[in-house]
Write a protein that binds this DNA or RNA. Structure first.
Length: 213
DNA sequence: GACCAGGTCCTTG
DNA sequence: CAAGGACATGGT
């Protein structure tokens, strides 16, 4: 990580500009079990396909850690097929469900754990990397863990900020006030902006690029 | 038909 | 540690 203040100022500028542009938006409010499932299903996958899978799981009463832990794998596979990597993702979902049930007893019980401990434990579950862990912490457990995804890296690259993943995380966490709603909102802003304005084709005219000067 | 999508893991150099 | 491949379906 480079703690360079000019880099941090640039990130602060990104955050402020996005807030001016989009204002208050409330993103991904769903029950914790559903957030955890969605966080895994959205790996390398468009969200629209994830929603289909979530609907299928819900229809089969499979949208809870307890149900996923108990269900036969082929039932899960069938429901999540539309998100791609369906065998791998089914394994990951069941590994997460087993972790929740075996190590904590329930999702509600998990909420009692501290953020650092939770993060470390989640990263120990096969199939859960940094982004998935932080998504779960931020959107399922309302913690101040900033999510660094492909959109965030693309947008930052546009603005001339180039860091290793941990660098990005600490940059954003040093700029944002320690309030969960700001974390989820800023990440939502980045996704909205990057999707519409900073796609591979349009990046040249992306206004964030002007922060380079 | 090529190319990409809100990653993660495993193998190599 | 960086780079490359595997995992797979669905949309443009």
């Amino acid at each position: 990580m480079s703690g360079s203040s000019s880099t941090r100022d640039r990130v602060r500028l990104i955050v402020d500009r996005l807030e001016d542009r989009y204002g208050t938006i409330d993103w991904w409010h769903a029950p914790p079990d559903e957030v955890m499932v969605g966080a895994i299903l959205t790996q390398q996958t468009r969200w629209e396909n994830v929603e289909r899978a979530l609907d299928r799981l819900r229809a089969g009463d499979l949208l809870s850690m307890a149900a996923i832990e108990a269900a036969p794998a082929d039932l899960i596979e069938e429901a999540v097929r539309c998100t791609g990597f369906f065998r791998v993702k089914t394994c990951r979902l069941q590994a997460l469900a087993r972790f929740v049930i075996d190590e904590h007893g329930s999702v509600e019980a998990m909420a009692a754990a501290g953020t650092d401990e939770l993060r470390r434990d989640l990263l120990g579950v096969p199939g859960i990397g940094e982004e998935t862990a932080d998504s779960i912490l931020c959107y399922a457990f309302s913690r101040c863990s900033f999510v660094i995804d492909a959109y965030t890296r693309r947008l930052c690259a546009c603005a001339g900020v180039d860091e290793p993943v941990e660098g990005y995380r600490h940059l954003f966490e040093s700029v944002l006030p320690p309030v969960n709603v700001r974390y989820r909102q800023t990440h939502a802003h980045i996704v909205e902006y990057a999707k519409s304005q900073c796609s591979r084709k349009r990046c040249e005219e992306c206004s964030i690029r002007s922060l380079n000067a």
